[in-house]
Design a binder for these strands. Structure first.
Length: 568
RNA sequence: UGUCCGAUGGUGUAAUUGGCAACACGUCUGAUUCUGGAUCAGAAGAGUCCAGGUUCGAGCCCUGGUCGGACAACCA
């Protein structure tokens, strides 16, 4: 089997398949698949999508792309009491923004209510389903616990005729909510609780966002989901691990409607995404929003798609992240650092560099003419020449970052200090001569001199100095607000504590608003969602709160900072 | 105490399906740099949860444990 070892490989990329790809490739050997697959992304429209959904979206659309197939978007709208059209719009927006398109393959589980109902009648006629008159509490109680068998309902052995009659009357609105349900007749002593005569239909006198008041009985997830998959002829129904226990039930329902010669939908499960220092359940995210711990679903601290977008994440960065985290079946907690790596990776290539000083301190260049002003040509992005250059005004008074100056610096400090020189990026080398302080001892002004020959591109411009600072001309700068974000939780795994509520770990300092920032004039009228690198600081993104009078920027992520790291 | 699933460097994912553990992130060096960024070069770090067994050979197979997760909504 290793015969042609010495034919030697032209180092072709080793394709390592994840377990889903292996299953698919195995399946595809069967001609019934016709060499193609059909996946689906099935959100319930009861909340906003988060990065965990992004993983699933990338997986489902990605797999389909890879194997010559398509992906359906199907809203799992079987519980009208929790679902709203507002959510379906946001979900569609987020998927498109991520870069995926389902064309006209947009469906709703509610599209299939008629078919589902017919199949339910068939199950009743065949003796596989019955109407139960017990209360919710009784049903639940009689299911008992996983280690002891359940108790059969006294209504379990009604005749198909009686069941059919009752079921039709349920549909005809003759009963109140909770009075009756339709149950599958499977096995009350199965060790798998989902097989203990699961409920198929319940009565809900609730208006549905799409079917209006047509129905007062609605199918449960287990019944609706699998059958919807089959109706759409989904080949691979990929979901998260918690549904693994549902699989026998999924298959049981499918057995009762399956037609020979058709593709039989296969459900397979993968481990959901977890990221440290955040939470990833819709319920908890909703709670953070409702209790005002954050400012809405798109708060830049939220792991929602809309939050990440507002924070300044790009679709490509999230897709890269989804690829990097991989897919498997073991529990995982991904390091937030990986997500950050992914944005930096993308933004480094595309974000123009600009000058912004977040915590300004004034520098006066004593030997620079009082009313002189120059325009310095600076490169927009050293990683991408096609982004060209722009002009940046320079004058006698400039601002630099307060922490770029130290009166009494440690040996490895490469920035400005008395008697030291630094380069002002794109301009001159300056030397610090003196410092002016107020009564309290706070530095109010730093006096420097510049060397005219060191202007970028000038005769002495390649003189070596240790540090290069970003800066902004005082009289040309515009004021801006900058919002800095930190992790939302102070604990690595906020909902991993049995005795403590995750909310106890909310980081009180996750948002810091700086209102006294100075940015270069080119940033005057930027549109929300524009990405920049604030030179030496990090990647920033114009916020939707920005106005002509006061631009607002969100910090997406800092630059890697080996200096800060060293000083920890 | 029931059933199902899982266990590989700090984190995540691989290992041609039995051939002496690889990739990415992170970490640490060094080079380079008008961003303490980026880039480039290199290093450290696991012997695969444990114990047996099969085999010339086990991360992959078998047995028994241990630990972790999921499951007892008229939620999805």
């Amino acid at each position: 089997m290793v015969e042609n070892k010495n034919t030697v490989p032209e180092e072709k990329e080793v394709k390592k398949l994840n377990f889903l790809e292996q299953i698919i490739e195995e399946d595809l050997k069967n001609p019934i698949y016709n060499n193609t697959i059909l996946t689906r992304f099935p959100p319930e429209p009861n909340g906003y999508l988060h990065i965990g959904h992004a993983k699933s979206i990338c997986l489902n659309f990605g797999l389909a792309q890879k194997y010559n197939g398509l992906t359906n978007l199907r809203f799992d709208d079987t519980n009208p009491s929790k679902e709203e059209t507002e959510y379906v719009e946001s979900i569609k927006e987020d998927i498109h923004w991520l870069g995926f398109d389902w064309g006209d393959r947009e469906f709703f589980a509610s599209d299939y209510f008629d078919q589902l109902y017919e199949w339910a009648e068939k199950l009743i006629r065949d003796g596989y389903a019955y109407v139960d008159d017990q209360s919710a509490e009784q049903i639940s109680k009689n299911r008992m616990t996983p280690q002891e068998p359940g108790i059969e309902s006294p209504f379990r052995n009604r005749t198909p005729e009686e069941n059919l009659d009752l079921f039709r009357r349920m549909k005809a609105s003759e009963f109140k909510e909770g009075e009756r349900v339709l149950r599958a007749k499977i096995n009350m002593s199965s060790p798998n609780m989902h097989m203990r005569d699961p409920i198929m239909y319940r009565i809900m006198h609730v208006h549905h966002h799409r079917t209006g008041d047509k129905w007062c009985i609605y199918p449960m997830y287990d019944y609706a989901h699998g059958q919807s998959d089959y109706i759409e002829r989904i080949s691979h129904s990929i979901c998260t691990l918690e549904f693994e226990v549902h699989r026998p039930l999924y298959d049981w329902f499918l057995d009762h409607v399956y037609e020979e010669g058709t593709v039989r939908t296969k459900q397979r499960e993968f481990a959901r995404l977890n990221i440290n220092y955040t939470v990833m359940s819709k319920r908890k995210l909703l709670e953070l929003v409702k209790d005002n711990h954050v400012n809405g679903w798109d708060d830049p601290r939220m792991p929602t798609i809309s939050g990440l977008r507002r924070r300044g994440y790009t679709p490509a960065s999230i897709r890269l992240f989804a690829e990097k985290v991989g897919v498997a079946k073991r529990d995982n907690i991904i390091d937030m650092g990986l997500l950050e790596y992914c944005v930096r990776e993308d933004l480094n290539k595309i974000a123009p560099r600009v000058m912004a000083v977040l915590d300004p301190v004034k520098i006066v260049i004593d030997n620079y003419p009082d009313d002189k002003a120059e325009e310095m040509e600076v490169i927009n992005n050293p990683e991408d020449e096609t982004q060209g250059s722009r002009m940046l005004p320079f004058s006698k008074e400039i601002y630099i970052e307060r922490n770029d100056f130290m009166e009494d610096p440690p040996k490895k400090f490469f920035r400005l200090a008395p008697g030291r020189e630094v380069r002002l990026k794109g301009a001159y080398i300056i030397m610090c001569n003196s410092v002016v302080k107020d009564d309290e001892g706070h530095i109010t002004e730093i006096h420097c001199t510049y060397d005219e020959d060191t202007r970028s591109g000038g005769p002495a411009s390649n003189r070596k100095v240790k540090g290069t600072l970003h800066w902004v001309s005082a009289k040309h700068a515009i004021d801006a607000e900058v919002r800095l974000y930190d992790r939302l939780f102070s604990d690595e795994n906020p909902d991993g504590h049995k005795d403590k509520d995750y909310k106890e770990f909310i980081n009180p300092d996750s948002l810091q608003v700086l209102t006294n920032c100075k940015v270069e004039p080119s940033l005057k009228d930027t549109k929300p969602l524009t990405h920049f690198q604030f030179q030496r600081l990090g990647y920033f993104c114009t916020d939707k709160d920005t106005t002509a009078e006061k631009p607002v920027f969100n910090r997406t992520v800092t630059l890697r900072d080996s200096w800060a790291k060293k000083n920890k």
